[in-house]
C-alpha cells in the first residue's frame, strides 16, 4: 500500500455566489465517511486562505520571515486528504470523487515515505 496526498487547489478570494457551500460540505463529509469505511482515510484538513500564510527562508546566519504564501498565484492549496491505496488507479478513484465533491481540481501525488 502507498500513501497518496490529494491536494485541493482553490481560487483565492471568497467563493462566487454560484457555489453551493452547504452542498459541498455535505458531499465532502459523505466522502470522508466512505474513505474511512473503506480503510483508505489517513488524515485530512482544510486551510485558512493563502493570505494567512507566513514563509521562512534559511539565510547565512538567520532565518528570514516574510509574509506568504510561498508561490504567488491566483490559486493555492486550500486543503488536502491523505489516503492509502494499493496503486495509482485506486488513488485516482478517490481523487475523482474528491474533485466531484469539492468541485475543485485535485492533484494526486505519492508519498516517498
Amino acid at each position: 500500500m502507498t500513501k497518496y496526498l490529494l491536494s485541493i487547489y482553490q481560487p483565492d478570494g471568497p467563493p462566487p455566489a454560484t457555489v453551493n457551500l452547504e452542498r459541498i460540505m455535505r458531499d465532502v463529509g459523505a466522502l470522508t465517511e466512505e474513505m474511512q469505511a473503506a480503510g483508505a482515510w489517513v488524515f485530512a484538513g482544510g486551510l485558512h486562505d493563502a493570505g494567512s500564510a507566513t514563509v521562512l527562508r534559511p539565510g547565512a546566519d538567520d532565518v528570514l520571515v516574510t509574509d506568504g504564501p510561498f508561490v504567488e498565484g491566483k490559486e493555492h492549496l486550500g486543503g488536502f486528504t491523505v489516503v492509502t491505496a494499493p496503486d495509482l488507479d485506486a488513488a485516482l478513484e478517490w481523487g475523482r470523487k474528491l474533485a466531484r465533491a469539492t468541485t475543485l481540481p485535485i492533484e494526486v501525488r505519492p508519498f516517498r515515505h
Binding site: 502507498t2 494499493p86 496503486d87 495509482l88 488507479d89 488513488a91 494526486v108 501525488r109 505519492p110 516517498r112
Partner: peptide
C-alpha cells in the same frame, strides 16, 4: 514506479 501506475488490464467498467 513511484506513483505505482498499475500493471494490469483495467476493470470492465474502466
Amino acid at each position: 514506479r513511484d506513483a505505482r501506475i498499475p500493471y494490469r488490464v483495467p476493470e470492465d467498467r474502466d
